[in-house]
Amino acid sequence: MSKHIGVVGLGIMGSAISGNFCKSGYQVTGYDISQERCDELAGKGGNIAGSPGEVAAAADIVLTSLPSSAALDAVVSGDGGIAATGNKAAPIMECSTLPIEDKQRNHDALAAAGITMLDSPLSGTGAQAVTKDLAVYLSGDESAANMCAEIIEGFARAHYYVGEFGNGSRMKYVANHLVAIHNVAAAEALVLGMKAGLDAQTIFDVISDSAGNSRMFEIRGPMMVADNYDDATMKIEVWQKDMGIIAAFAKSLACPVPMFSTTADIYTAGMAQGRATQDTGAVCAVLGEMARLKR
């Protein structure tokens, strides 16, 4: 492959993405504040940089996958950041789920340095990222988006150009609004069936082939059946960030989202039960406890 890919942020999503680029034959350079994550990429054949700026200087295209707006600020404008030392020919695909205004601030900081940032959030879980079952929502400069579209097959199954900068995040908020609801709905249905005496695996097998099936039922159903949520592809504590962003977005538009709002307390109950680092599929255990389900 001709493109050299940079990845800043090697967490659940970034590690899967960078690993798939390596498998697809791309040269990959990555950076993370965790040495363990850096060592993991090195073990897959990737190169490790000493800063985000070094990643950008080496790469043709850079993807950032970060846990917070503060992390993005540091990656863009901090010591060794992309704005100061980046490669002006390399577009930045900002793949995190963050408030649009925070992405816009960093977009503007990079633009002042002659660097193009795209708002490019991803739809899919960490488990889906491993199998390249991701959709990419590209928004911003169209020529840069077309350039980045050429590498999508290295880490995702689909991409959509959705227009002006920020539309990628808007589309991601809509997608995650549905994820929040479908995840709790899948858990609630399984708990209902189990409380009625049905076998959990049988419920999953039958409903997966029914009109009531959903992607979340397919993806998180197996861990709900196993009642094991420790191998997290999206931790409840991280999901709280996404829930807050979507709630604030809806409020800013004066748009009621009653079903979404109802799910928030279920995820919060998971935090209260000490499930912060478990997968969001653990809402099945939360609802099971509420129903006094014995498993």
Score class of each variant (00 low, 15 high):
50 G>Q: 14
226 A>V: 06
30 G>A: 04
127 A>R: 02
230 D>H: 13
102 D>A: 15
59 A>Q: 06
62 V>T: 08
156 A>T: 01
56 A>D: 09
59 A>K: 04
60 D>P: 11
34 S>Y: 02
77 S>G: 12
213 N>I: 13
246 I>M: 03
114 G>I: 06
205 D>C: 11
214 S>K: 12
19 G>L: 05
223 M>P: 06
77 S>C: 11
22 C>M: 06
3 K>H: 05
57 A>V: 01
210 S>C: 02
174 V>F: 05
287 L>N: 02
156 A>Y: 09
12 I>R: 02
69 S>F: 03
89 A>V: 03
222 P>S: 05
118 L>T: 07
113 A>R: 08
67 P>F: 09
277 T>F: 09
204 F>K: 14
224 M>T: 08
115 I>W: 07
59 A>H: 03
236 I>N: 15
239 W>C: 01
75 V>E: 03
63 L>G: 04
293 L>T: 01
205 D>G: 15
171 M>D: 00
194 M>Q: 07
8 V>K: 04
159 H>L: 01
167 N>R: 14
89 A>M: 09
217 F>L: 15
244 G>W: 11
33 I>T: 14
127 A>I: 04
59 A>G: 07
184 V>A: 14
45 G>R: 07
189 A>H: 01
95 C>N: 07
216 M>C: 00
42 A>P: 06
97 T>Q: 04
290 M>V: 08
277 T>D: 15
206 V>P: 07
98 L>P: 00
141 D>H: 08
121 P>S: 00
237 E>Q: 07
76 V>P: 05
115 I>V: 10
124 G>I: 04
125 T>W: 01
245 I>H: 14
